[in-house]
């Protein structure tokens, strides 16, 4: 799909009128995900009960691709188990790397529309920010054996070079 068409038909709507861009009242976990190089910055919030993601939302700012991708991801993962969410994240990352199966792509539903833009090297980080952050959160919840309640996430270090969290130190 032509990038302009992609924006018109999918990205703009999720960017300008997102469904899940708000704060959750009682999130189980909140994690700040940042792309220091472009200033994409989201606070992803998950509400988890007995291994099921009951609700997901985000706040923050960034390019249309990062915001729209986070919104579509929330659509995808709400109601899914943690393992299903991780499988979706793997499918999305696989799609970007060009290794995803047709089945994996279909599992991503609307998020699969980002395939073309995600192939652009400079946009990979924008498209994957939400997914990367979600993966980190779910893995932490599983590692710590949290099934519900509130977890404070402080596992993102502040990068000495850029003073931002989650920077892949170059």
């Amino acid at each position: 799909m032509d990038i302009k068409t992609l924006y018109r038909e999918i990205v703009n709507e999720h960017n300008l009128h997102p469904t899940h861009k708000h704060d959750l009242e009682h999130p189980t976990m909140v994690l700040n995900g940042v792309n220091p190089s472009c200033g994409d910055d989201i606070n992803l919030q998950l509400s988890v009960k007995d291994g099921v993601i009951e609700d997901a939302a985000f706040n923050g700012s960034g390019c249309a691709v990062s915001q729209a991708s986070a919104d579509m991801m929330c659509d995808d993962i709400i109601g899914k188990t943690e393992d299903e969410a991780l499988a979706l994240a793997e499918a999305f990352m696989g799609m970007i790397r060009g290794t995803a199966t047709q089945e994996q792509k279909e599992s991503l539903d609307e998020a699969a529309s980002l395939e073309d833009v995600a192939h652009m090297p400079a946009r990979v980080k924008c498209a994957s920010l939400g997914w990367r952050t979600m993966k980190e959160m779910v893995e932490k919840l599983q590692k710590d054996g949290v099934t519900q309640g509130r977890v404070t996430a402080n596992n993102s270090e502040v990068c000495g070079a850029c003073q931002r969290m989650d920077c892949e130190k170059k």
């Binding site: 924006y7 390019c63 249309a64």
Partner: peptide, 22 residues
């Protein structure tokens, strides 16, 4: 209202090369 990366991406479809970022 437009992030520079989005600006550069849509201008690219017009065959215009500009830089976006920091």
């Amino acid at each position: 209202g437009c992030h520079p990366h989005d600006v550069a991406s849509v201008l690219d479809t017009e065959h215009i090369c500009i830089r976006a970022g920091h």
